[in-house]
């Protein structure tokens, strides 16, 4: 009832008007399609209480007072698609998450339902619980394997720091083998995280700990999310490690999401440093764009704007930007290049 009243009031106050979405971004005089590989959705009651409080306190007041309705309005497929339209992003990938201590749970089943809302535009990355692996590894792997066979599922999402698993944990050979055998890339959160109860020690955040696995599974593709960013101190963190790993290993991809947001990088200097470092190392052909949205209204569009500015600042050509914004996504996940 309250939410139904608030939305029209907000619409009136903010003067929102419906416009046909225009897809793509202008870069170097060309119009480039954009795919956002890092989007979240889920249910508010599957986020732990401490993180709900953390998130609610970061919404602009008084929206934090009605955090659940504020979040759920943008966390389902409909809300995500609205944000993609507003940003001009043609396609996006939704993440399943199993991190009950920190950011909560967005089940594979929920993601599968959301992907089906618009299968032409939405993909899914499946995930699995790791917290009782010594007892339920087989069941978890079987569940993930079944998920990866569902329509639209193109990869696997893990977050060692959020799931409290060391990056060098030797127990997951079967998981890396599954990734290699199915050709589904593994997305890894790297770097620290602002969320309550995150495992912040280096063994959980520093991608250097993951190198033995990268080396041992050359047929598995690994995407290092956030470039090892230090979200606590708002510093580039393990950027150099990520870039070096990409330079040394053909199966390492880089994804610069979230680190360049207005909150994590107010001046944009760190995102510029990151794009410059990737260009300098000659690994642009393995940089995959993502935002980590939707977070808050307008975030997906704003992050794309900041990323385009960083690429321009770092001297990317239009073809390099095209690779980052869409072609590399198609290459790593084995899907058709996004249309404009």
């Amino acid at each position: 009832m309250v939410e139904r009243m608030i939305t029209p009031i907000l619409t009136l106050l903010l003067g929102c008007a419906e416009e046909a979405p225009v897809y793509g971004v202008s870069f170097g005089g060309e119009r480039l399609p954009v795919v956002d590989m890092h989007l979240h959705q889920g249910e508010w009651n599957l986020i732990p209480e401490s993180t709900r409080r953390f998130l609610a306190s970061r919404f602009p007041a008084p929206l934090g007072l009605i955090a659940e309705s504020t979040a759920e309005g943008s966390l389902n497929a409909e809300g995500v698609l609205e944000q993609l339209d507003e940003a001009g992003v043609i396609q996006g990938a939704l993440f399943a998450v199993y991190a009950p201590r920190t950011v909560g749970v967005a089940t594979n089943e929920y993601v599968a339902e959301q992907v089906l809302q618009d299968p032409e535009r939405l993909f899914g990355l499946g995930s699995l619980r790791l917290d009782d692996w010594n007892n339920d590894a087989e069941a978890q792997l079987a569940g993930l394997a079944a998920t990866l066979e569902k329509p639209g599922f193109i990869g696997i999402k893990l977050a060692h720091a959020h799931q409290h698993v060391r990056l060098d944990d030797p127990r997951f050979d079967a998981l890396w083998s599954l990734a290699a055998a199915t050709g589904k890339p593994v997305y890894l959160h790297t770097g620290s995280s602002p969320f309550p109860n995150t495992a912040q020690d280096a063994a959980y955040t520093d991608p250097a700990y993951f190198e033995p696995i990268i080396a041992a599974y050359p047929d598995a593709q690994f995407i290092l999310g956030h470039l090892g960013y230090d979200f606590i101190n708002k510093e580039v963190g393990a950027l150099d490690t990520c870039v070096e790993l990409a330079a040394r290993y053909e199966n390492v991809w880089l994804e610069p999401s979230a680190l360049g947001s207005a909150g994590s990088d107010p001046t944009g200097a760190n995102l510029l440093t990151a794009y410059s470092a990737m260009k300098g190392a000659g690994v642009i052909d393995r940089v995959v764009y993502g935002s980590d949205g939707p977070q808050s209204p307008g975030f997906v569009a704003e992050y794309l704007e900041r990323s385009v500015a960083a690429m321009e600042g770092a001297g990317y050509t239009a073809e390099e930007a095209r690779a980052v914004l869409s072609l590399n996504f198609a290459a790593v996940f084995g899907v058709e290049p996004a249309p404009l």
Binding site: L13, S57, P60, A61, P62, L63, G64, L65
Partner: peptide
Amino acid sequence: VPWFDPPGFSLPGA
């Protein structure tokens, strides 16, 4: 112009 939980930002209202 409310300020719900200073120093955080609050949206204005009407």
